[in-house]
Design a protein around this nucleic acid. Structure first.
Length: 585
DNA sequence: GCCGTTTTCGGCCCGACTGTTTTCAGTCG
């Protein structure tokens, strides 16, 4: 069983225990363990065999035992036992805003309900108000929550939340008496999807700010309103929270509302060990409750013995605090490090712009090279190129390049389809004519895990493959990646010197940063590819840079952050080594 | 259930807001 599957089981145990009214620290232990398992950079089987699971922080004897059972047998009687005590519908109830474990359980026990439909009917019939602690407003709130649950998934892609966040931020900053306002939360941490938007502000008069925020354009409903905090739901779907704090609290508040929750818990535990108390108002000495003046986040981290402010993208409690003490993280990739764009489409296949138009915009972005990688023959739905059209396209590229006089370069690339059996869509002789070969799966997503893994392993063994594109095939909020033993695929990529793409399209962001971190540790290079099908799509590369930063990625690990000469040299050498290896395995 | 310069028991991050209640539990982030 894969890490992700194990993590999901642990999370389920946490939720079930919560519904059963277990000790909250016990449920948190399972949540915590799930996150730790997701972030492991070592093989689970190996850890189990060496009996080193309990050495991992957050995994003790009990959970280690359960993980070993899960990995060894694919089953866990303990989990089955919990499932038999809790109707499956109750897990779904927890997704209803305002309904937590205690209330869900109370309703279930008192009224004998266990599905979302039954809960909805009971609220409609006014039966919940019979229960202690429930009233008419609770019923209405639950009904609204159920309705929302049925219409939208509840998470939103970055373009949606970033646009809304920017709009709200501009509004708040423009209000009289507002001294400072910033975006926090998952939007600031550049998470691939967000549930809500967090804003923090300092203002002379909080009431004016609350008023304006509650009545801001695009606010669908106000879901909470106090003297310093206002929560709304936006027409685009996500919620937005604004907190107004005193100026001296700004750094603590911004840090607090940036999260992640797990990072905050870890930081606060650290503060506590060092004799401090940290909340959204201040970092204070425990002994005399005296606040330490912290003008910015760096000062808070420094007081806690962390020499540098941890970049928001890294605040996921994935070892960043420990790393900050011992040398830190690499200089993270910056948008300005990107030198060129690879894996871009043109009107030769399913792109909407010509090669010249895509090249012009790439130059306007200050970049030096562009890899045109249209689809291959089998991608008929996308106007895939056959050998004859490849030759014509390459002639066009030669002509365009001649006009650039060395100041810019278009690379002849291809996004070649990985066929059902792992063979590539083009013969080696044709692949050899490209500067750059990007291989990708575009069909048969429902294939079994073993077969899909074997398919990718065979594709990676082809010496002409330089980059594996969108390695898991996921579409955020729509479909999971295809079943795959990703660890084996990444290990093979490491061995073959094949780079793995970070597809920067905001609905893909594939490879996921959690897996990219593993890949980078294995020495795999990556490449931040916009996979643009239009001129504006070229700018999606920025989303990919953010994801790479979340994976602790430095510029040296990114092919398209290299100067053209280094990239070409790398590609040529890689191909020489791979083809030689194929001849004499 | 995890963890340990608070070490094998007794802690575990912390506060705003809501709704229902009349002093606070539950939810959320």
């Amino acid at each position: 069983m894969e890490r992700e599957a194990v993590a999901e089981r642990l999370e389920e145990i946490g939720l079930l225990l919560e519904l059963l009214g277990e000790n909250p620290f016990k449920t948190r232990a399972y949540d915590n363990a799930a996150r730790v398992v997701r972030g492991l950079d070592r093989d689970l089987v190996e850890l189990i065999e060496r009996k080193e699971l309990t050495k991992v922080r957050g995994i003790g004897a009990a959970i280690a035992d359960k993980i070993a059972t899960l990995v060894g047998t694919g089953e866990l009687p303990y989990l089955d036992g919990l499932r038999s005590q809790v109707p499956p519908g109750l897990l779904q109830w927890l997704e209803v805003p305002g309904l937590g474990a205690k209330k869900a359980r109370a309703i279930h026990v008192a009224l004998g309900l266990s599905t979302l439909d039954e809960l909805e009917q009971a609220c409609g019939a006014g039966r919940l108000r019979e229960l202690a602690g429930f009233g008419e407003k609770s019923e209405q709130k639950i009904l609204r929550g159920i309705e929302r649950l049925r219409t939208r998934a509840g998470r939103y892609l970055r373009p949606v939340v970033e646009a809304a966040a920017a709009r709200l931020l501009a509004l708040v900053r423009g209000l009289p008496g507002v001294e400072r306002a910033e975006i926090g939360g998952s939007v600031r941490r550049k998470l691939e999807t967000s549930k809500d938007i967090d804003l923090v502000a300092t203002a002379v008069n909080a009431e004016i700010v609350m008023e304006a925020f509650a009545g801001a354009p695009g606010v669908l409903e106000v879901t909470g309103r106090g003297p310093t905090k206002c929560s709304v739901r936006l027409v685009e779907g996500p919620a937005a929270d604004l907190r107004v704090v005193a100026a001296e609290s700004f750094a603590a508040a911004w840090m607090y509302f940036t999260g992640s929750k797990a990072h905050n818990i870890a930081i606060r535990a650290r503060a506590q060990r060092l004799g401090y108390k940290l909340n959204e108002y201040a970092l204070a000495r425990e002994a005399d409750d005296e606040a330490v003046a912290c003008p910015d986040e760096a000062a808070i981290y420094a007081t806690l013995g962390i020499p540098r402010a941890i970049p928001p993208e890294l605040r996921e409690d994935q070892g960043e605090i420990e790393a900050a003490e011992s040398g830190g993280w690499p200089a993270l990739l910056e948008a300005a490090d990107i030198r060129g764009l690879l894996h871009v489409h043109s009107s030769w296949s399913d792109g909407s712009a010509t090669i010249a138009e895509m090249a012009r915009e790439t130059q306007a972005m200050g970049l030096r090279y562009l890899g045109i990688c249209d689809h291959s023959r089998s991608a008929a739905y996308a106007g895939g190129l056959d050998a004859e059209r490849v030759r014509r396209q390459q002639r066009e590229i030669d002509e365009l390049n001649a006009g650039y006089r060395g100041e810019f370069r278009i690379l002849k690339g291809i996004e070649v389809d990985i066929l059902h059996d792992g063979a590539l869509d083009f013969p080696d002789e044709l692949l050899a004519t490209f500067d750059l070969v990007v291989a990708a799966v575009h069909s048969l997503f429902t294939m079994g895990r073993e077969q899909q893994t074997a398919r990718l392993l065979r594709a990676l063994a082809n010496p002409y493959v330089d980059i594996l594109a969108h390695p898991t095939g996921r579409i955020l909020l729509q479909r999971d990646g295809y079943p795959l033993d990703l660890t084996r695929v990444l290990d093979a990529a490491a061995e073959r010197g094949v780079a793995v793409e970070v597809n920067a399209h905001p609905a893909r962001l594939d490879l996921d940063w959690r897996d990219l971190r593993y890949a980078l540790k294995r020495g795999i290079k990556t490449c931040i590819n916009p996979d643009a099908h239009s001129v504006p799509g070229l700018h999606d590369v920025a989303y990919g840079v953010d994801v790479a930063r979340k994976a602790w990625c430095g510029r040296d690990e990114v092919l398209n952050a290299w100067p053209l000469e280094r990239l070409l040299d790398h590609l040529a050498r890689r191909r020489r080594v791979a083809t030689a290896r194929e001849r004499c395995p």
